[in-house]
Design a binder for these strands. Sequence first.
DNA 1: TTCATAGATCTAACAGTGCTAGATATTAGA
DNA 2: TCTAATATCTAGCACTGTTAGATCTATGAA
Lengths: 210, 210
Amino acid sequence: MTTKAQPEPSISRKRRERERQEMRASLLEAARGIAAEEGWNAVTIRRIAGRLEYSAPILYQHFAGKEQLLIELMAVGFAELADRLSEAAKASPEDRLTAIAGTYWAFAFASPELYQAMNGLDGVPFGTAETPAEAKTAFRTFRVALQSIAEARGAELADPAGATDTLWAFLHGCVSLAMASRIAGGTDRARTLMLNALEPLFAAQLRRSA
Amino acid sequence: MTTKAQPEPSISRKRRERERQEMRASLLEAARGIAAEEGWNAVTIRRIAGRLEYSAPILYQHFAGKEQLLIELMAVGFAELADRLSEAAKASPEDRLTAIAGTYWAFAFASPELYQAMNGLDGVPFGTAETPAEAKTAFRTFRVALQSIAEARGAELADPAGATDTLWAFLHGCVSLAMASRIAGGTDRARTLMLNALEPLFAAQLRRSA
DNA sequence: TTCATAGATCTAACAGTGCTAGATATTAGA
DNA sequence: TCTAATATCTAGCACTGTTAGATCTATGAA
């Protein structure tokens, strides 16, 4: 592909290109703003455009469709997260691990709408509905199993409920990322990583039996 | 609330009640089937009903709306998961931890559509789209930080990429559940649990420097 | 057997969705 | 001042979840 020598873009052409970029950014910001205020299922093309006092089809001058806009927003989120993580990595070596994790957490909860877009959690439809009884049963089963394992080792869980939530979160994190093809190497590698980390994570939940 | 003595429901009344329950179950199964075959955003009321050769409004005879049906399906999923977990808990104490985790994993990937409904991952819109460059940057930042921490301890990561994915998955799992109000005790407790488990999880990724 | 009623199911419609085609303003540069 | 490019809009399509009202069908009593 040969790059033809451009005849120096005219002054107003440059201005319009800049305005295009600004419009594009405004659309992204509008979508994010609506999501922040009313959740992702309030985000419609008409409302995004309306917030900037434009009509709906304007969006297609800047994005291939709604989904493309969301993907772009996901990229924005990851860029921001990378920034913050590298900032947190400047903490002293002893504090660094906590700083990184704390920053990740803070980022997610400072901009839940972004975090949701980044991780395909659009809507979070069940967040409001109370946890169904069946879910509690599943959790309880899990907790009892963990306790039985501890007991078999002549120990007990320091905080049974906490241990349950912690290990459950880990399993869910592994599955969730693997299912979204977010772990390089495919599901087999993901599964192995999960199983490998399981033992130390569990062991840390134990204390000697009284 | 006083329970009035019912005049013994007639025979056909009982039959119709049973048929109602069957229809209800069929609707749930139809929704799940479509999701399994074509993903959750192919699941529309008309298609659910159509699969049973009914017209759309039939759904409202059994559920308050589409979202209610999904919530019901989530309950079905948790019930099934609880079943499998309690089965896995019958493994010998040494194998039990692995059995539980493996069962959780197997359940999720045997019925991804159910797992998605249970965890508000409807659509998984970005699963197909390749990971954006920004996400890779964020991962890399994270990995470099982890390596620097290891180094500061006079050790190194046995598998840097694996350690990165593992810890990332854990953070994501914690945030994701906390954000969906799935961890009792609120976000503060969730955050504490996460930070507490961080150290052992990280330590397990180390090996002495060569 | 006849008939009013309760129940099941449908058709038609509504407002809202993402998206597209075609018309219409607005601006740029000759 | 005029032509061409750009920006933007209006109108519409096929679809979504949902509701109202009509229409069948089966029930249990007279």
